[in-house]
Design a protein around this nucleic acid. Sequence first.
RNA 1: GCGGCCGUAGCUCAGUGGUUAGAGCACCAGACUGUGGCUCUGGGGGUCGCGGGUUCGAGUCCCGUCGGCCGCCCCA
Length: 397
Amino acid sequence: MPKIRALRGFRDIYGEEWEKFWNIYEVFRENLELFNFKWIETPVLERVDLFIRAVGEETDIVQKQMFLFKDRGGRDVALRPEGTAGVVRAFLELALNPPQKLAYFGPMFRAERPQRGRYRQFYQIGAEFIGYSGYLSDVEGVLSAYLPVRSLGINVEVIVNTLGGESTKRSYSQALKEYLRGRDDLCEDCKRRRETNPLRVLDCKVDSHRLNPPDILDFTPEDVKEEFYKTLERLKEEGVPVRRDKNLVRGLDYYTGLVFEIRAKDMEAAQSTVLAGGRYDHLVEELGGKPTPAFGWAAGVDRIALLYMPDRTRKPLYFVVRTSEDLKEEAFRIAMRLRGEGKRVDMLHESRSLKSQMRYANKVGARWVIIVGEDEYRRGYYRIKDMETGEEGLVAI
RNA sequence: GCGGCCGUAGCUCAGUGGUUAGAGCACCAGACUGUGGCUCUGGGGGUCGCGGGUUCGAGUCCCGUCGGCCGCCCCA
């Protein structure tokens, strides 16, 4: 029989990596608890219109990366490519009153070409501040993202920029196009991009262009600009390693104001962005709610797992072995009794020689081996061996 | 979606078109029978990713396909 393999870009998360995922989630959970977040789990499958409206018709995510199909009722559905749309939909559907801080953790799906730190099913931890406006909520939003990452001990920097607002975005985009048209020293990709997606030219990896494009801040209203500077200052005061990059842009249409990325310093550029987000003041309205300001971010768990080394402190392992198969039941009883005392205990069930059981106990890292032996058992004892010192002692059953 | 590199044992890999495809590690079992690690000995395990083609003969050459990595695109 030919083996059935996982689909391209889909994978099994197992053992040590699963442990990492869970630890990363725990650290985020503890940190978000400090901000009084509520947790929410929304469906993996939604009507495709939700994402078209939320993420943007013209984005690559919607144009070519969604897993799309018709369900049995003929509805057009999609596996969620990101988390914000579903959370905002739920916010409206559950008729929650703003303000709300909602956090989530789960798989997202995008049909991209997979590579390291990029999978077709990937995991995000995200947080949404719905019904929050003002620069302090921008500050709180970035802090709620930075603190958990810092707790994980990852060496990062925070990069921020502002998109100013709807009208700013448009007029800036126009000005940028005109600026780029006048240049013939761009790479081939950028020459194409300057018409289709001029903002993208700004973070082109080919830095030989030596561009000096117009700054979006010059197109931003004074009050928004002031708040942006205040945000930057407050973040520095809070000890966040933050800097502005006027070329930072985000791929989702719904962002309106502050945008930010958290980048790992010890990682190749392709995987270095481990978390990103920003302000989206029009999305709630776009999905049929009242005008509601909001801010959110999502962390890429798969990428964080590449950087995070857990200080795994598991309980020491007790391993129960027996000298003959007749004592298997008794060994099992002892194992369960120790588990009842909260100890981590394991044993083999197949019949193997004592030597083989010992070898196995050693391999799986047992700290202590409980030896259930015939002689001792008759006298009402079992033997306990310290696998580090080799010392043995008798314990009454 | 585009381009490049790659695919041989569980893992890392070797294998000038020519017998029954190898190594190290890992695994299993023994080494004067109730005790792990070290050493020694032995053993199991491979449709050479999959499918075609060329050839007397293909792991080796060609095509396709699937998968991985890297770059692009894009993004967490």
